[in-house]
Design a protein around this nucleic acid. Structure first.
Lengths: 338, 338
DNA sequence: CTGAAAGCGCTTACAG
DNA sequence: CTGAAAGCGCTTACAG
């Protein structure tokens, strides 16, 4: 690769001057600028990012810290949104390979040795050991779907409570009263807010809350299977169930079908996320839509704003959600008044 | 962040010595080594990767060039496999944000300005404009699911032909003779090999090949929908269809169901990939399994081997595939001898 | 408007 | 076994 010296020599100027035209400094004569630009093209010169980063203390790189597997459709869509937003930003995405087996491993130190300019964090618990030092540091950070804030850390999430309330409202409107709820982990804001949406939604329609109708799970299909299995064993089986992920809904529907019952005739099911698969699953899944890609894009855009402007206040963003009715919800078989 | 100078001063040695203990050089006394190691821990010192990379001409970074969206389940699984293999390698993954709107954009130059040590490429056509310069360069490269080789480029793929032959054999064994084939793009090895698997499989069982039973598509669900729609309009409708991706199979099944026919009673359908969703789709999808994660891991491992040893011959690897029979295949309704 | 020089944080012959 | 010094490819005051 041609270096800045090669360009300088070829163009008959100093490296300082070459640097100035690369960085669009104004104090360069048009003639020189033109000449240098030409030789840059001619030599196919591209500044070495490591060298530039070394002196500027930056890397034009943002790190992602994702604990969930990439096969999780939420993560996949999120990454897709991130990719789009990064397209013309000049930043590249680096996935830091965490060595979780090493107890002294520090995500923050990994970031710093890589000179990462900012990080995007998804899927960490409130009590993750890596979190504290990250929040105390000067590292610009955006959390996705978590309500964690810091001096240099903001977050972006979906209207979780309102989304679930719409789901409950839809079911209540169809005549359901025995509505169960399969929740994600309740040790973080997202889980708690969705549960609140459920309880508030039930109350708003004068429906009775029963402890046994609420199952805490983990957003995975297997989790949905487990929770639904328990719900089916109940004396008074629910006629509808609201799940807090599409994956759990798929799992629940599988169990229901396997037990000889039908969705939606016997039991209505609602998911959350509106992933790609919600539509192609049969029956097509009624679900709460959140615009995951736009969350990813937005997260990156604000992160870059934070990186480039130390005074940029770490933002708190809530994206809207809305119910998409498809084929897994229907009136309950016997609309008996209880 | 503490620098190597801080460590040197604190430990009372020269920076050269600190560098030597960091890099495990043998010519350091035990006493010095111990002292330095201690202060490194104490100061939480981590070498600046950019600085090290600048002098070594490396970055301990591998780039990925993926044209397909991350939401493609194949890509998601591939990345998951890559992530696992990277875990303790000391390398990080960087997703180069391509600026496709810029006609002068060069993927290779982007890699070089980032000092990327090697690249993984998936989903590029044979005639991709970025390919040529990449193959001519010294950049260690591994292609996934392509048969592109170069002085420093190898590839890894699945037993494509054999996989499809198994699918055809399964259908023939059930008594099908009107077997259609929905192919991916035929401008690359994967597409061609799978088509070969189909034609050879048909011949092997003495089944008649009909041009109208072969549809070229693009691996997407929408593509599956289009192709299946055409197949259903045929005078002599096929009783079975082999698709070269799970997504196309999902699309095909949707169309079949929408047209009032049943899978597998009226038409059997087979997919390819055995993605996560094949199992939870209802009916569960019969499909050709390829071990995508292991392909990802393997690709990274060989790439790193190529990076660390210039004499390492770029490998050509073929991973096994096998048919997984689930619920979308059955005997044809009327097993009429033709 | 242009360039010489110092410095970013490392590594690596080389001398002692 | 240890360290002084040059150099990796850039940027940035600063002097002219």
């Amino acid at each position: 690769m041609a270096s800045i010296h090669d360009v300088a020599k070829e163009a008959g100027v100093s490296v300082a001057t070459v640097s100035k035209v690369i960085n669009n400094y104004p104090d360069v004569s048009d003639k020189t600028r033109k000449k240098v630009s030409q030789t840059i093209k001619q030599l196919k010169y591209h500044p070495n990012v490591a060298a530039r980063g070394l002196v500027k203390g930056r890397s034009w790189t943002v790190g992602v810290f994702v604990t969930t597997p990439f096969t999780n459709p939420f993560v996949a869509e999120l990454l897709e949104g991130i990719k789009t937003a990064l397209q013309n930003s000049g930043y590249d995405l680096v996935h830091l390979s965490t060595r979780f087996d090493d107890p002294s491993y520090s995500f923050l130190e990994h970031c710093m040795s890589r000179n990462v300019d900012g990080v995007l964090v998804f899927g960490v618990d409130r009590d993750d050991p890596h979190l504290e030092e990250l929040l105390e540091s000067d590292m610009p950070t955006m959390f996705v779907d978590a309500d964690i804030q810091g001096r240099r850390a903001g977050y972006i999430t979906t209207e979780n409570r309102a989304g679930i309330m719409q789901a409950v409202e839809h079911l209540a409107g169809l005549g359901h009263s025995r509505i169960a709820f399969i929740s994600g982990e309740l040790d973080n804001a997202v889980g708690v807010l969705r549960l609140e949406g459920y309880t508030e939604g039930m109350k708003a329609h004068g429906l009775r809350l029963k402890d046994e109708y609420v199952k805490e799970s983990d957003y995975s299909m297997e989790g949905g299977v487990r929770a639904m299995t328990e719900l089916l064993e109940l004396e008074e089986r629910p006629t509808a169930v609201v799940c807090t992920s599409d994956m759990m809904a798929f799992g629940a529907i599988n169990v229901i079908h396997r037990s000889g019952l039908n969705v939606p005739d016997d039991i209505s099911v609602i998911g959350f996320d509106n992933t790609y698969y919600a539509e192609i699953f049969s029956p097509a899944l009624t679900t709460v839509n959140q615009n995951i890609r736009s969350i990813g894009s937005h997260a990156i855009e604000t992160l870059i704003a934070m990186v480039e402007n130390a005074d940029f206040e770490p933002p708190v963003v809530t994206e809207p959600s809305n119910l998409i009715v498809r084929r897994t919800t229907a009136k309950p078989r016997n609309t008996v008044k209880l």
